[in-house]
Design a binder for these strands. Sequence first.
DNA 1: TATTGTTATACTCTATAACTATA
DNA 2: TATAGTTATAGAGTATAACAATA
Lengths: 147, 147
Amino acid sequence: MGVCATTRDDAATEAWKLLLELWWSERPPRFPAVAGEFGLSPMALGLLKSLEPGIELPMSTMAEWLFCDASNVTSMVDRLEARGLIERRDSPKDRRVKLLALTAEGETLRERALARLHEPPEALASLSMADQRVLRDTLRRALSAEG
Amino acid sequence: MGVCATTRDDAATEAWKLLLELWWSERPPRFPAVAGEFGLSPMALGLLKSLEPGIELPMSTMAEWLFCDASNVTSMVDRLEARGLIERRDSPKDRRVKLLALTAEGETLRERALARLHEPPEALASLSMADQRVLRDTLRRALSAEG
DNA sequence: TATTGTTATACTCTATAACTATA
DNA sequence: TATAGTTATAGAGTATAACAATA
């Protein structure tokens, strides 16, 4: 009994485990399913999701965020650019850097894909209004604290 | 103005969006990072995660849950079995079916990987105890309602 | 010298189709 | 006939290393 080296059972850990359960218990799994709906690999959807409208991001940063090699980002960007969803722009500050940005078409597709991802699971939607608001407000506090 | 066809802004949707933000804002992204720590592909970690200790699961079910082709499950199971983490068992009810189960070694690795996945993000851990408990209790209600 | 992104290449992962064995 | 899992194969995805351009 007592504290185990690899397991904590405080309320934050319990809440987090429940959140993951909510995410992972979906069948079919939401993320790859939605990627498939839009003819994207899961990683390509991750790239689009990470590219916010109006924001330009260096390819190297994208590689970090996607946890993959830079050469892989080159391949994905080649495909997404050929589909007209994103474009490469030259950085005004460093001529080695290429900045990624959504095209108008890319913004539209991203919006539709995010809308699918944002549909709350049944377990959440069937909570009482009071519980839904409590959940929303508490999570807002959590995310605003670290900005 | 008013209601858009593809976007809802009720509390459940807002809460779900915040929850996904919490999961996706982690850098490096938690799931592939943890898989790498244990020498597993993300899908292989997903397979182990889905295999609860003491539970036997048909390979066809695993293919559904992982959203991939049955032949791919065969490959993954070949590798995981060669590593001694899972085993194939004959179904007593249907001689075509192979049931997957964790080995003792597989249970240990799964436990350690889950412990890493279950570490709450900083944003959650730094919430007040009261907020943590509210979050936990509300999510428990959500998940228990559908069983 | 170090870094960004690309290329060439090989390796891993995944799906398709054909197959075996059961049902 | 239909289904569970395997095999052979091809295709997609990914990383490694060498490279060109720039810092």
